[in-house]
Write a protein that binds this DNA or RNA. Structure first.
Length: 855
RNA sequence: GCGGGAAUUGCCAAGUCUGGUCAAAGGCGCUGGACUCAGAAUCCAGUCUCGCAGGAGUUCGGGGGUUCAAAUCCCCUUUCCCGCACCA
C-alpha cells in the first residue's frame, strides 16, 4: 500500500513558474517516483494506491469536514492569523513555529482574516493524557506536551471602571492577586481601540499599535526585544481588594493566549517588575520569604519564590501555594473567578488560499449565509479552468467553480475558494489503507476493517513532524472515533523518528549560512565575498544538495544504493551522503558477488574442526542477523553479515568441505537478500536453485551448535592466529620455518578450573590462594600459581569461563595443524609442556593459550 | 530561562540501554605489498605509543566517584547542536 500526499504547493508553484498543469505535473512526478521505488525494490502493494488529489479520496476530506461542522468541531472565525507572503497563504500555528513558514522558511506576518478552524483545543487534555500510552521517542512526546502547553491556574475577573464588563484574565499565581498594581493588554485587543478612540491617548496608541503590529508577534515577543507599553487611560478593579489599577498595553502580551491581557504583580514577577520600574508603577509585596523580610521600597528584583502571604486580607499568613486554592475558592464564591486549566495550543486553522488542495465544501449565500454543501453533492471537484497568475488564489478565477446556486434557496451564491491544509489529507490515510475509500460508500472506511487492522503498530517518520502531522493525525483519530468510525484512540502505537540525510554543501562561515540552490556552484558568498567552506547539512530542495535516486541507481545500481543506505544509516541518526563511501560500498558488493559466485577451488574430503567452526559461525550469524533485523538495527545486521563474509572467505581459501560451503553460501545469500534483493536473486539462480529466492524460507539456526565450547574453540583458533601474527611482526620475520605450540600442563587446567569456579564469589587473591593451596598437587607450585592468578585476576573478564582439557586442546591443534602449516608455509610442532622442560617459553602456556615458539 | 541531544583513536562514524570478549566495527585518508611498462581500477596487509616473543603504557571532551573491572554506571563541569520561550 502506498499513499501519495499529492496535493500541495510544489505542483502549484510549477504551474505558476512554467505553466505546468498541476494535475499532469503531479501525475508525472508520481510516475517517476514509482518507477524509482520499483527499481530500488521497495515492496509496496502497488494495487492499493491512494492519492490525495483523487476526487475519490478528497471527497472524504470534505465529508469529514461536514461532519465536524455538524458537531461544532469545525467553525469559522475572524482573527489574526499567520500569513506567509511568499506562499501567499495562511498557516496554522504549528506551521509557523518560531515565526518562520514551515515550507519556505520565510518570515510569517499577521493578518486579520476570516478562516475555518478545527477545535483541536477541545481534545487538548486527551492529546496530552494519551501520550503516556504511546511508545514514542521521549523527545517527540515532550515537544507535543510543550506545544499543548497545559497550565493550571485561575480565571480572575477584573471589572473595568466605568464599563459594564470584566476582563477575565488567566493566572497561575492567584496567590499574588493582592499584589496587582496594573494590568497589561495585548495591543490588538479589540477593546483598546474602542477605549482610546477620541481620547488623549488615541494618537500615541495608534503610533504604538502600528509599530507593534508591523513587527510580527514572533519578533515582538522575542525575549531580547525591549518590553514596551503605554497607559491607555483606563482602570480596572481588583476583585479582592476593590482597588483601581491602571491599564496598560504591552508588546509582550499575546492576544491569543489566555484573555489577551494579564494582571501584573511587579513584586513577584520579574517581567512585571521591570515594566513597573520603567513606567513608575508602585510595587506591592504580598509574599514574604520565610527567612527574611522584603521591603517594597528597596527590592531590586521581584521575589518569585515561595513564602507566606502578607497584605492579603483574610489570607495573611497562609503559605502561598495553599493560598492559590483558597483564593480561587473565594473568587468563585464571589462570582469573580474560578480555578481552571489553560492550554497554549490553538485551534487548527485549515483554510489555505491556494488552488492545489481539497476544496472546502461551503457555499456563501446572501440569503442563507454559510451553507454546507449537501452530502449528495460531494465531492466538490477542483475545477480545471483556472488562471495561474502568481498572485491571489487561482480558484477565484474559475467562474464555473465560484458561481453556484445556494443549496437551500436556489438563489445565486458563491463557493468558498479556500482549500484545506494538506495536513488534512494525511490525517486519515492510514485508516483508508484498511479499506480504501470509495465514491459509492456512505462512510470513508469500514469500522470493522479499521478496528481489525488498526491502529498502526509501527510508524516511521521525521521528527520535524512532531507538532505537525503527528499531532493532527492524533486529533483526527480521536474525532473519527467520536464520530463512530472506528474504536482507536491513537493512530500510531510505536513511532520511530528517522534521521535526516546530510550532504556537504557550500557554507559561508561569516554569514553563517549555506548557499542556496542558485548559488551552490559559486566559490564565494554573494553577501560578504567570503570563500565558501564545505559543511554537512541536511539535504533539502532549497539548498539544492539533493541527490537524485535515479542517478545513483543508474551509476551504481539499485542494490548498491540500498546497501549503502542501509549500512551507512542507523534509522534514527540518518546518513552522511558521500560519493567516496558509496564507491566503497560498490566495491564491497561487487566483491561479495564475485566471492559467492565462484565455486571454491580448494576442496577437501575429510571433515575437520574448521567445518564445525564455520557451521558454528553460520548459525551464530543467522541468529544475530535475525535478531538485529527484528530490532530494526539494520546496520548491525549488515555488519554481522559482512563479518561472516570475511570468515567464510577465509574458510574458502583454506579449503572447504563442499557440502558445508554450499550450506553456508546458501544461507548467506538468503541473509543478504533483504539488503540486496536483485543481486542475491541472481546468485540464487547461479547456484542452481529453483524458484524465487524472495519466496525461500528464512534460515533457522540450531542452538545446539551455539555452545560455549564452540565459541571457545572459535576464539582459540583466532587467538592463535593473532598471536602468531603479532609475534611475527615484532620479530620482523617474513618467512617462518617452524612453529611450535606447547600445550599447558594438566595441573594448569585444574588450577584454571578451580579458579574460575571461585571468581564468581570473590576476587580476593588471598582467599583464592587459600582454597587452591589445599590441593596437594598444586601446593608445591605456590609461587608460580600466585603469579598466574594475579595475571588472570587483573582482567578476569577477558578469560573464558570454560576451557578444554590438555588432551582436547592437543587434539584441537592437531586438527588445525594442516591449516596452520599451509597458512604460514612452514612446519608445525605441537607439544606438551611436560615434554619441554628445558624450554623457557614453555612455562608461559596456559589453558586456551599455548606457548608459541616461531623460528 | 526551560527542555532534549551530542562530544570516541587523522577525518566520518559504530559501541553506551544490558560494565569484562574494546586499543575500540565499518568507511575515508595514509603506508607497504600484489597485479601492471606506467597510471587508474582491483586485491592483500598495516595504521595510539613503545617493545627483536605474544607484552607494557596512554586513550573515548574535562574532573571526581562506584567496581576486581568503566567509552559504557553515578555526580560535577566545559563546549556544541536542536526544540520551546516575556505563557501570564
Amino acid at each position: 500500500m502506498k499513499y501519495h500526499k499529492s496535493f500541495g504547493m510544489p505542483a502549484e508553484n510549477a504551474a505558476i513558474d512554467h505553466g505546468a498543469n498541476p494535475e499532469e505535473w503531479t501525475d508525472d512526478n508520481i510516475k517517476t517516483m514509482q518507477k524509482q521505488q520499483k527499481a530500488i525494490g521497495l515492496s509496496y502493494d502497488w494495487n492499493r494506491l491512494l492519492y490525495s488529489h483523487d476526487p475519490n479520496y478528497y471527497k472524504w476530506d470534505q465529508w469529514f469536514f461536514l461532519k465536524m461542522l455538524e458537531k461544532g468541531i469545525a467553525y469559522r472565525q475572524e482573527s489574526y492569523v499567520n500569513w506567509c507572503e511568499s506562499c501567499q497563504t495562511v498557516l496554522a500555528n504549528e506551521q509557523a513555529q518560531g515565526g518562520k513558514c514551515w515550507r519556505c522558511n520565510s518570515e510569517v506576518d499577521q493578518k486579520f482574516l476570516t478562516q475555518w478552524f478545527l477545535r483541536i483545543r477541545d481534545y487538548a487534555e486527551e492529546l496530552l493524557d494519551d501520550l503516556n500510552n504511546l511508545e514514542w521517542p521521549e523527545k517527540v512526546k515532550i515537544m507535543q506536551r510543550n506545544w499543548i502547553g497545559k497550565s493550571e491556574g485561575t480565571i480572575i475577573k477584573f471589572s473595568i471602571v466605568g464599563q459594564n464588563r470584566t476582563i477575565d484574565i488567566f493566572t497561575t499565581r492567584a496567590d499574588t492577586v493582592f499584589g496587582v498594581t496594573f494590568m497589561v493588554f495585548a495591543p490588538e485587543h479589540p477593546w483598546i481601540k474602542e477605549w482610546v478612540k477620541g481620547s488623549e491617548y488615541e494618537e500615541e496608541f495608534n503610533k504604538f499599535y502600528d509599530e507593534i503590529i508591523r513587527q510580527d508577534k514572533f519578533h515582538r515577543t522575542d525575549i531580547d526585544v525591549e518590553k514596551k507599553g503605554m497607559f491607555i487611560g483606563k482602570y480596572a478593579i481588583n476583585p479582592m481588594t476593590g482597588e483601581e489599577v491602571p491599564l496598560y498595553i504591552g508588546n509582550f502580551v499575546i492576544y491569543e493566549y489566555g484573555a489577551g491581557a494579564v494582571m501584573a504583580v511587579p513584586g513577584h514577577d520579574q517581567r512585571d517588575f521591570e515594566f513597573a520600574q520603567e513606567y513608575d508603577i508602585p510595587i506591592k509585596v504580598v509574599i514574604q520569604p520565610p527567612d527574611y523580610e522584603l521591603n517594597a521600597e528597596k527590592i531590586s528584583r521581584a521575589y518569585e519564590e515561595d513564602g507566606y502571604l502578607v497584605n492579603s486580607g483574610e489570607f495573611n499568613g497562609m503559605e502561598n501555594r495553599m493560598a492559590i486554592q483558597s483564593i480561587s475558592e473565594r473568587l468563585e464564591e464571589m462570582g469573580m473567578g474560578f480555578a481552571t486549566i489553560n492550554y497554549k495550543i490553538r485551534d487548527w486553522g485549515i483554510s489555505r488560499q491556494r488552488y492545489w488542495g481539497c476544496p472546502i465544501p461551503i457555499i456563501y449565500c446572501d440569503e442563507c449565509g454559510v451553507v454546507p454543501v449537501p452530502d449528495e453533492d460531494l465531492p466538490v471537484y477542483l475545477p480545471k479552468d483556472v488562471q495561474f497568475s502568481g498572485s491571489g488564489n487561482p480558484l477565484e478565477t474559475s467562474v464555473t467553480f465560484t458561481k453556484v446556486k445556494c443549496p437551500s434557496c436556489r438563489k445565486d451564491a458563491r463557493r468558498e475558494t479556500d482549500t484545506m491544509d494538506t495536513f488534512v489529507d494525511s490525517s486519515w490515510y492510514f485508516f483508508a489503507f484498511c479499506d480504501p475509500p470509495s465514491m459509492e460508500n456512505t462512510i470513508p472506511f469500514s469500522k470493522e476493517m479499521v478496528d481489525y487492522w488498526g491502529n498502526i503498530d509501527f510508524y516511521c517518520g521525521g521528527a520535524e513532524h512532531s507538532v505537525l502531522h503527528l499531532i493532527y493525525a492524533r486529533f483526527w483519530t480521536k474525532v473519527g472515533r467520536d464520530l463512530g468510525l472506528h474504536s482507536h484512540d491513537e493512530p500510531f502505537q510505536r513511532l520511530l523518528t528517522q534521521g535526516m540525510i546530510n550532504k556537504v554543501h557550500p557554507y559561508c562561515p561569516k554569514c553563517e549560512r549555506f548557499a542556496m540552490k542558485a548559488e551552490m556552484n559559486d566559490k564565494r558568498c554573494k553577501f560578504c565575498d567570503t570563500d565558501y567552506i564545505l559543511k554537512s547539512v541536511k539535504m533539502s530542495k532549497s539548498y539544492g544538495n539533493t541527490v537524485n535516486p535515479g542517478d545513483i541507481m543508474d551509476e551504481y545500481g539499485a542494490d548498491i544504493a540500498r546497501f549503502f543506505i542501509l549500512f551507512g544509516a542507523s534509522p534514527e541518526s540518518g546518513l552522511e551522503w558521500s560519493e567516496t563511501e558509496i564507491g566503497s560500498a560498490s566495491n564491497n558488493i561487487r566483491n561479495t558477488f564475485q566471492f559467492l559466485a565462484e565455486s571454491p577451488e580448494n576442496r577437501r574430503t575429510e571433515k575437520s574442526i574448521r567445518d564445525v567452526l564455520i557451521t558454528y559461525r553460520l548459525n551464530k550469524t543467522c541468529k544475530e542477523v535475525t535478531e538485529f533485523l527484528e530490532k530494526l538495527e539494520i546496520r548491525n545486521a549488515v555488519n554481522s553479515i559482512m563479518q561472516f563474509k570475511k570468515d567464510l572467505k577465509t574458510y574458502k581459501e583454506e579449503g572447504v568441505l563442499l557440502e558445508i560451503f554450499e550450506q553456508c553460501r546458501e544461507k548467506f545469500i538468503i541473509l543478504l537478500h533483504p539488503i540486496t534483493p536483485h543481486l542475491t536473486e541472481e546468485l540464487w539462480e547461479l547456484i542452481g536453485k529453483k524458484g524465487y529466492l524472495s519466496l525461500a524460507a528464512w534460515p533457522k539456526w540450531d542452538d545446539n551448535i551455539l555452545t560455549d565450547e564452540n565459541d571457545f574453540k572459535w576464539k582459540l583458533i583466532n587467538g592463535v592466529f593473532d598471536d602468531i601474527k603479532s609475534i611475527q611482526s615484532i620479530l620482523n620475520k617474513d618467512k617462518l620455518s617452524q612453529i611450535t605450540l606447547i600445550i599447558a600442563d594438566e595441573w594448569k587446567f585444574k588450577l584454571y578450573e578451580i579458579l574460575m569456579s571461585l571468581v564468581d564469589n570473590t576476587h580476593n587473591q588471598g582467599e583464592i590462594m587459600n582454597v587452591i593451596m589445599k590441593e596437594a598437587d598444586l601446593k608445591p607450585r605456590g609461587k608460580l600459581i600466585s603469579q598466574i592468578i594475579a595475571r588472570i585476576l587483573k582482567n578476569i573478564g577477558k578469560y573464558s569461563k570454560v576451557c578444554l582439557s590438555t588432551d582436547e586442546e592437543f587434539k584441537f591443534y592437531s586438527d588445525i595443524k594442516q591449516i596452520i602449516e599451509k597458512k604460514y608455509g612452514c612446519n608445525l610442532i605441537i607439544s606438551h609442556e611436560k615434554n619441554e622442560k628445558g624450554n623457557k617459553k614453555a612455562s608461559q602456556a596456559l589453558p586456551g593459550k599455548p606457548a608459541i615458539i616461531i623460528e
